[in-house]
Design a protein around this nucleic acid. Sequence first.
DNA 1: CTTCAGATGCTCT
DNA 2: GAGCATCTGAAGA
Length: 203
Amino acid sequence: MLPQSFFDRDTVTVARDLLGKYLVRRYGGFVLAARITETEAYIGRMDRACHAWNYRRTARTETLFAPPGTAYVYLIYGMYHCLNLVAEPEGEPAAVLIRGAEPRHGFDIIAENRFHCKAAEMTARQKKHFLDGPGKVCAGLNIDRRLNGLPWGSPELEACASLAEIGLTDPAGDGGSLDIHSGPRIGVDYAGEDAKLPWRFWL
DNA sequence: CTTCAGATGCTCT
DNA sequence: GAGCATCTGAAGA
């Protein structure tokens, strides 16, 4: 599991460093794992796109003020969930949104969660868009608001540098060197100039 | 490949 | 009451 100190750093750095890491989700006896391929940084101190911009503290944003590594999960558009991991020292409201991932373990369960079918029954179109969006990551890994505020270190959700440390191997390999890209974040036009910040990262 | 409408409920004003 | 860190299927190019 990544140490809490991994998240106790500048949010943009954390967002970039999370690429290629493995998200592990455990529930009901299942172990699901996916490799993170896309992230975005949100920093309340200075970023109009962040829910806690200018340290805005409400019932919803309270989680952003929690210790680094805490899960921040909220409902968007009435029907999808977004998973974030809190960053920066405790008290600085900031987080990294997990925007995309690739399944690595528990394919059938993830396929069931996403498409209500077995992995082998997925269409080519479904495979191509397996977990390529924040709502899709949450649907596939069965993440919803019940996980909001989950402390870092909880077995239900963790991130690790390799699957070997939890006794698994990556069927697609660990990938070697990463080809990291960056650009403006998605869907934050309401943030004015801050919408142009290159705080989205992907492989 | 692209655009587009519609779904749906929580949060804050 | 307005808006939202989204997704899907249908239709057209």
